[in-house]
Every structure is written in C-alpha cells, then in structure tokens.
Amino acid sequence: MSTKTNIIQGDIKKRIDTWIANYPEDQRQSATMPALRIVQEANGGSLTNDLMDEIAEYLGVPPIAVYEVATFYGNYNHKPTGRHSINWCNSISCYLRGGEELRARLEEKLGVKPGEVTADGKFSIKKVECLGACGGAPMCQIGKDYHENLTEEKLFKILDELE
C-alpha cells in the first residue's frame, strides 16, 4: 500500500531516522511524536490525515495509533496555523499577572480569536496551558521562542519585528 502523500524523504526522512535511532531497534513506534512534529513543521504548522497515514506506514504502526497520539497532545494542529503561531499561556500565574487582558489586546490588534489565522496568513493564536515559565508571566511562545514579562508595548514590538 502506498500513501497519498510523500513528505518523508530527503532531509525530513533523515531527521526522522535520527529519532528512530534514538530508541531501541524494535521500538519504531517511539518515534511517532518526533515524526509528527517534524512533518507538521515541514507542512507549515499543521497535520493532515494523509500525512498521519504516511507516518504510520513509515513507522509500521496502525494509522489509528498515530491518530490517537496526534490528537492527544496539544502541540499537534489539525487546522492550518499562521506562519507564526502564538501560543498564549492561559494558566494561573500568567492569569494573575494580566495575561487575559493582554491576550484581549493581542486579539484586537491581530483581529483574530484563538484558533483563527490572520487574513495574511502571518499569525494565529492558540490558547495553551502553563508553559513552565511562570516566573516570566505573562508570557507566550511564538514558534519555538519564549517571550516573557510581556507588556503590550513589548509584545507588539516583537510581533512587528517578525517577518
């Protein structure tokens, strides 16, 4: 059986293979999470059923096992995201330090709600739980980077500087 997509090749395949080698030989399933992350990145920030099928086939696990993982963990997206996905911490320490109000300002500025993508495809907002940086509350993660001790001014400046 061959899958509908063919994203696991070249560099992507190499990266996934490195992760497969990170686990015992007979435990290819362990590479499900890194494979999902790498494929999601390569696909512009989200996954599709066909991509998950391809991963399942590549790792030799049933597709449903991959769907389970891909829908259990919060960092996998099943809807397109913006080029910069803003993961906004919603949890207690950030809340105590004005995280909600600041998010409201962010939504206003970008004109989108959590789960939506700006018209130019540049940004999307996602509400997430504590990112383990509560000392820098309020904070968010954009792409891979943490931005802490945010104020409206600081946040908007960061956004403006992004490509």
Binding site: P62, I64, A65, Y67, E68, T71, F72
Partner: peptide, 10 residues
C-alpha cells in the same frame, strides 16, 4: 490483532 478502533483526543 488489528487495531481499527482507538481513543482519540483526551
């Protein structure tokens, strides 16, 4: 021996 059903989401 054939995983067809799963529990997706959490």
């Amino acid at each position: 021996g054939m995983m067809e059903l799963g529990a997706t989401g959490r």
